[in-house]
Amino acid sequence: MAVTSAGRLRKNRGAAPLQALLWRWPWVRPALLLIPPLAWFVLVYLTSLVLLLVTAFWTIDTFTTQIVQVWNLDNFRIILTEPAYRLIIGRTVGIAALVTLTDAVLAFPFAYYMAKVASRRTQTVLFAAVLLPLWASYLARVYAWILILNHSGLLNWSLQSIGLPPANIGYTNTAMWLVFSYIWLPFMIIPTYAALERVPDSLLEAAADLGARRWRAVLDVVLPLAMPGVVAGSIFTFSLTLGDYITPILVGGAGSSFIGNVVYSNIGIANNVPFAAALAMVPVAIMTVYLLGAKRLGAFEAL
């Protein structure tokens, strides 16, 4: 008797500690769940960012191209004072903003139609149509635009066949603006659509009951409610354009370098990693400001 009870006691003691531990310290359970993703985030993501930041304050020896670990602000001084880099940063941010604006203007009526006007069936078809381009490779779509925009391309052929002079927009910043606007459009439509769908129809009916015409209701009721969705979409279009360096290589002309292109050539060609790191901090800073602004506009609740 005593033996079995002692045995059972021992057995219980063996199974209980973990449960007892979780019961005594309730925070252990979420901690165990969170440690793997957090460790990943801190080790892989934050550490690389910190390394980037640290490297940005070093320079390379002109002669040996080895990194010299002496703290200085030379790289940042060059970026801020050399007109070429200011031009490139300005161009990158400018085109990213323009693309975001274009996509917002194009996406809103489309998303509104999808969310509020179209039948269930049409909605599904439109949704598929929006996502369809994402099935094709990014490169294939950019090359398709080269074929459209170049000197003897579809655009000029069409213009000439209706008696208009050719438009020479192949390999220009205009071409980049067009291609970026096309490529990132789905990323604007989908969050805008999601936000619009959440606007209750009853609000539109109430607006109508109070005598508002349709456009007035859209402007005063729907737009403010859908704004967080548009801002959420703009995070995608803006940051994706800001970080791109392939489209500028392919459809850009002379004077189409983006921040990414300069980073790439400093690492791949000149082996000047510190300068590339310093320049890479620019989009990080811009996005930080942008995201803080987006947060104030409620974009994160819409995501």
Partner: peptide, 27 residues
């Protein structure tokens, strides 16, 4: 290109500066 010229003096422009100049040309 290296900083050392053919005459042994360190007055030539090194490749790092070639790269930097190229960025300002094509910017």
């Amino acid at each position: 290109p290296i900083a050392t010229c053919d005459d042994g003096t360190d007055t030539c422009v090194a490749y790092k500066d070639w790269q930097a100049a190229w960025t300002t040309i094509t910017a």
